[in-house]
Simulated assay, not measured.
Amino acid sequence: MTLRAFHDSARKLLDPVVYDYVAGGAGEERALNDNEQAFDRYALLPRVLSGDGARDTAVDLPGARRAAPVIVAPTAFHRLVHRDGERATARAAAAEGAVLVTGVAATAPVHEVVAAAHEANPEAAVWFQLYPHPRREVTVALVRRAEEAGCAALVVTVDSPVFGRRTRDLRNGFSDLPAGFAAENMRGLPGSGPDALTDIPMSASVRWSDFAAVVRSTPLPVLIKGVLHPDDARLAVEHGAAGVIVSNHGGRQCDVVPAAVDCLPAVCGAVAGRVPVLLDGGIRRGGDVAVALALGASAVGVGRPVVWGLAVDGEAGVRRVLGSLRDEYDHTLALCGGRRNSDLTVGMVVLRGGTW
């Protein structure tokens, strides 16, 4: 099955409200659609007589040595689409050598997600995504949970000062999880009872000092997610970020922003190799992975395709999605004359229909 086929099958299987929650974006969904369509504007100029029969596509990421160049981006509420939820996703990612980013909107607690990943692969790396909370003791408690669970890194999402206005969810009246589902990592935090849930924080009062406080609070590497402006990329490195994830939140926050891949070259230029830069948004085929790496990304994240695979066939579906992207990328790398990821360079990227 192609990734498109997984999407089409998942759409038939899922409750339309749940499908819209996963598939939808903010506003008129221009940013969401542009994330995918932007890749149609790029092409690669292959090199010839420079390849090798054996290719090495592994990448060293914070807390994850020799990982696949495709990671599982943080996506919410996996149990809405499959009964095994994040545990199935964790086992699949671990088996495929892919970093899994779980987080505060998971419907399984982080210690169970990490345990499931390590059952499949004791060397698997799981990162934990969080939003800085206006009450710092809540953020610290989340960081400690991730550390104690065995997470290899933290990912701080910074592009959500307020919730995005997601047209489909507003139309469907989708605002709360159904009975029996919860954001389990937000349970029993400071200021609430042992079984009470704290709202996932969105706060316009969060500042760079709050991000720096997270970095200081933990020995884990801390990546920053949701950067589009090169000046923010520079500030992220200055405040201790171990990696920068270029992302527009899958088009779910602000509908007037560019496609994530169009922002990638300027961010890579600003970071200047000091930390890895990752891209999240719009990856739907192995050729997209190759374009992103040629433009400077160390790795890419995929979100919705993983959820569609989970919905269709659970753990096996996620493995097929990740395996398909891996194999397509390896094939594209070979066709471009590459032996390793670094053989894809910005000088090989051209605009379709443009002047060479």
Rank of each mutant, 00 (worst) to 15 (best):
V81K: 00
T355I: 12
G97I: 12
E315W: 11
G251I: 02
G286H: 04
A115W: 08
A73Y: 01
P109F: 00
A108Q: 10
E328D: 15
G287E: 15
G309C: 12
A117V: 10
L333F: 01
H133W: 01
A73G: 02
G243H: 07
A299F: 02
A10R: 04
P69Q: 11
G338Y: 00
A54K: 14
G269N: 06
R165N: 13
L14D: 02
N341R: 15
A294C: 12
A120G: 03
R284D: 03
T332Y: 12
G296S: 12
G164L: 01
R187K: 15
A212H: 09
D280Y: 01
A183C: 14
W208R: 08
N341E: 08
P230Q: 06
R166W: 08
G250H: 10
R304L: 13
A266M: 11
E86Q: 14
T2E: 04
D232S: 06
V143R: 04
A146I: 06
L170T: 01
R234H: 13
R285G: 02
L310E: 06
A152S: 15
V275E: 05
R207G: 10
V215T: 06
V321R: 01
V289L: 11
D195F: 11
V158N: 08
L100E: 10
T167K: 11
A106E: 07
G354Y: 06
G309L: 13
V215D: 05
P132G: 00
T345L: 05
S50D: 13
S205Q: 04
N248V: 06
G269F: 02
G323D: 12
F6I: 10
T345S: 13
L322A: 04
I71E: 00
V222F: 12
C151F: 04
V99D: 03
A43Y: 09
R30T: 13
L177N: 11
R285F: 01
L32H: 15
S203C: 07
G338P: 02
T198A: 14
R83L: 11
P132S: 04
V22W: 13
L293T: 14
E328V: 14
V17G: 04
R145H: 09
V350L: 14
E36Y: 14
R284F: 03
R83T: 13
